[in-house]
Amino acid sequence: MTAPHVKTLVVACALALAASAAFAQLRIGQTVGVTGAVAATVKESMQGAQLYLDHVNAKGGVGGEKIEIMTLDDAFDVEKAEANARTLIEERGVLALFMSRGTPHTEAINAVLEQHRVALIGPSTGAMVLHQPVKPYIFNVRATYQREAERAMAHLTSIGVRKVAVVHVDDSFGADGLQGARNGLKAAGLEPVAVAKFDRTKPDFAPLLPALQAAEPQAVLIIGSGTAVVEGIRSLKAARVGGQYLTLSNNASGGFIKLLGDQAQGVIVSQVMPASLNFGLVKEATQLAKAKGVDEVSPAMLEGFASAKVLVEGLRRAGAKPSRASLHQALDNLGRLDLGGLVLDYSPSDHTGLDFADLSIVGTGGRFRR
């Protein structure tokens, strides 16, 4: 065999070994907005996920192999999220994807998942479009946005609020949350007194203010992500539109509160994870966090922690040498899984995950209170 042929063979073997090692290390991919509008919440959710994965890896991982999360930054851009998903699946050889963020982003990723038959565990979005009809390769962990919005409207109407406005981002996420708000208000025989939408990439609230002021809402639900919602709350407060402000759980992070600064107190944020130590999930996460010198587990951290538990259980049930197919099959037939007081139940006809939804309010000191 000639020298060039030997060199080619060595390179081919090295590439094959690298691909094998990628799977041996249980490499999981993630595309998410490490920078951009949702960066603060992403940081916390991944801190929570890593908290549990570090705990599992310290005990030998799964089947003697450690779990590695390979994260690519999509800056909360839909096209980049789809491109990153292709890179992770087609070039990096990941077993599955984990905790994407954003409804249109996850919708775009789904086409890649179905093409390559790769599972996505715990997308950090509660869009109904990812639940019904069932997306074969998407395994939701958190409750839906519609469930959250309905819960928020039920609270407002129960305390006598009759005039609610909805301000939402102009995409599938915003439309989904708006539908949940309409459902919740309809149960009390009401409709939103005003509905306004803003651009996701270049939010501008000034043109929305006159119509919102004219509607004289008592409360405003703002459906959007991170910095856009912060800007919206500041604009509405400055224009004296509404007295109570609400947003959804995609903003349930300490980072979001910090961005709001002196405007944070009194803002209601829906939650898809419990806060009480009576839940085994909360107690476990809190104990592991304290062992690492972290004093408080935020709602965003807990969502990441719960999603990591589902990922690990899927890997454990996928066999000695997990493949994309065996991991998908394990998740598809997972059945009932108790995460610590919260139970999800996957089957081929149901990938919904949890149904827990609650409300919190930002209190003095910048902390969520139930």
Rank of each mutant, 00 (worst) to 15 (best):
I222Y: 09
A165I: 15
D176Q: 04
A175N: 13
A152N: 10
R162H: 07
D170F: 00
D204E: 15
P207K: 09
F173C: 00
N183R: 13
G232A: 07
Q179G: 03
L156K: 05
V166S: 05
G232Y: 00
V220K: 12
T201P: 05
D199Q: 14
Q179M: 14
A175M: 00
L221G: 12
T227I: 11
A187T: 10
G184F: 02
P210G: 08
G174W: 01
A194T: 08
I223R: 07
A188R: 12
T227S: 15
L185A: 09
R151P: 05
T227N: 12
E231Y: 01
G189Q: 03
R162N: 05
G226F: 07
I159S: 03
A165L: 15
D204W: 10
L190H: 15
E191P: 07
N183A: 11
M153Y: 02
V195N: 09
S172W: 01
S225E: 11
P207V: 05
D204A: 15
I222N: 03
I223V: 15
K163F: 13
A175W: 00
A219C: 06
A187C: 07
L212P: 00
I223P: 03
A215S: 12
V161Y: 03
D176W: 03
L156S: 09
A196V: 11
L212Q: 04
A165C: 14
Q218L: 08
A175Q: 08
D170T: 03
A228M: 08
A188P: 09
Q213I: 09
L178Q: 07
V167F: 01
G174R: 14
L212V: 09
G184D: 00
A194R: 14
L185N: 04
F205G: 12
A187I: 05
T157I: 09
H155L: 10
S172K: 13
S158M: 13
Q213S: 14
F173K: 00
S158D: 13
G224H: 12
A196P: 05
V167T: 00
Q179C: 01
A214G: 08
V164N: 10
K163W: 12
I159W: 04
V166R: 05
D204R: 11
A165S: 15
G226K: 08
A188M: 04
L208F: 02
T157S: 09
V167R: 06
L178A: 05
N183F: 04
P217C: 08
S158E: 11
P210Y: 08
M153I: 09
G189H: 08
G160R: 12
H155C: 01
L178D: 01
L190K: 10
V164L: 10
A219T: 02
H155T: 06
P203M: 08
L221W: 01
A215M: 10
I159P: 00
F198R: 06
L209Y: 01
R200T: 01
R200Q: 11
G184W: 04
V166K: 10
F173T: 08
Q213M: 13
G174S: 10
A211L: 01
